[in-house]
């Protein structure tokens, strides 16, 4: 079999993603899928103005978004707020996820990245969302990119490592696939699309491409890596489209928080409103959804 990077072609990739993202998920399937979206959500705040009280509010909402609704999977925050979140989430199933490695650019020395990772873990983070060095990747220095992932991997033993590819900066589907394969080999527990700091982030085609990479890796090595989609997923319809992509490409084994996450800050509001609509038959206003 020919070696080298896996080939990707945009036309049929996008065609397939479009079909999957427009699957019609209705009635009982919709109710189930909406709860799944909540259970797989990394409820996120990554702003310069984040304060401890904001994070405590987010944690409370993550533990109990609304009556009868499952807890989210994790709260995703900056390292400085990890201790606050850990305390607020004590006794719940909700994990503390911290971005690290000079998020969002990743352009700091490796020792700084490793120290930031360790400090986040010491403060109580159970999951680390690292960014890859896109500058090194685009310059063709793939060894450096995978070396850094492996180093962070070593630094966070026992914790879940999500590797953010920042797909909007990689330039082509082929490059994204290459970055996926590289991160999988280097030991990522999750592949994650983006930082959420770019206009272009998750698209159905990118999600499909990442699923294919994860599927091939599982077939080759037996190791099942998760997928985290982040950036620009703001409503239920979009989220359900991604659920369909994972469902039909990786299978139901992936539709659980251990292998699937959606990182979002405002998506939860719409999911709760849609859920209420499925339950009662009519839309409640945004005023009826408690935001953090």
């Amino acid at each position: 079999m020919p070696s080298g990077p896996t080939r990707v072609d945009a036309v049929m990739l996008e065609a397939r993603a479009t079909v999957l993202a427009s699957r019609s998920i209705k009635t009982s399937a919709k109710r189930l899928a909406l709860d799944l979206v909540v259970a797989c959500m990394d409820l996120t705040t990554l702003e310069g103005k984040d304060t401890p009280s904001k994070v405590r509010g987010l944690c409370a909402r993550g533990i109990s978004p609304a009556p009868g609704v499952p807890s989210v999977a994790a709260i995703c925050i900056y390292p400085a707020l990890v201790a606050v979140a850990r305390e607020a989430l004590e006794g719940s199933s909700v994990k503390v996820a911290s971005v690290a490695t000079a998020f969002p650019s990743g352009l700091s020395p490796l020792d700084v990245k490793l120290r930031e990772t360790r400090e986040a873990l010491e403060a109580g983070a159970q999951e680390i969302d690292m960014v890859i060095d896109r500058a090194a990747f685009l310059a063709g220095d793939y060894g450096r990119v995978s070396g850094e992932i492996a180093a962070v991997r070593d630094a966070c033993e026992g914790a879940t490592l999500k590797v953010i590819l920042e797909v909007g900066e990689l330039g082509s589907y082929a490059a994204i696939r290459r970055a996926c394969d590289l991160a999988l080999e280097a030991g990522a527990d999750f592949l994650k699309t983006s930082t959420g700091k770019l206009g272009v982030s998750s698209t159905p085609a990118v999600a499909l491409l990442m699923c294919e990479s994860i599927r091939d890796h599982a077939r080759r090595t037996g190791r099942c890596v998760g997928l985290k989609l982040a950036g620009g997923i703001r409503n239920s319809k979009a989220a359900l489209g991604y659920v369909a992509i994972v469902h039909e490409t990786l299978g139901n084994d992936w539709l659980r928080p251990e292998r699937f996450r959606i990182g979002a800050s405002t998506l939860l509001d719409d999911v709760l409103m849609q859920r209420e609509k499925e339950r009662t038959g009519s839309y409640a206003g945004a005023d009826y959804v408690a935001t953090a």
Binding site: I25, K26, L32, A33, D35, P70, S71, S93, V243
Partner: peptide, 14 residues
């Protein structure tokens, strides 16, 4: 609470 996640099956969408 972390509920066990049931398998997703598409409901009929005629």
């Amino acid at each position: 609470m972390r509920a066990a996640v049931p398998d997703l099956r598409y409901a009929p969408a005629p």
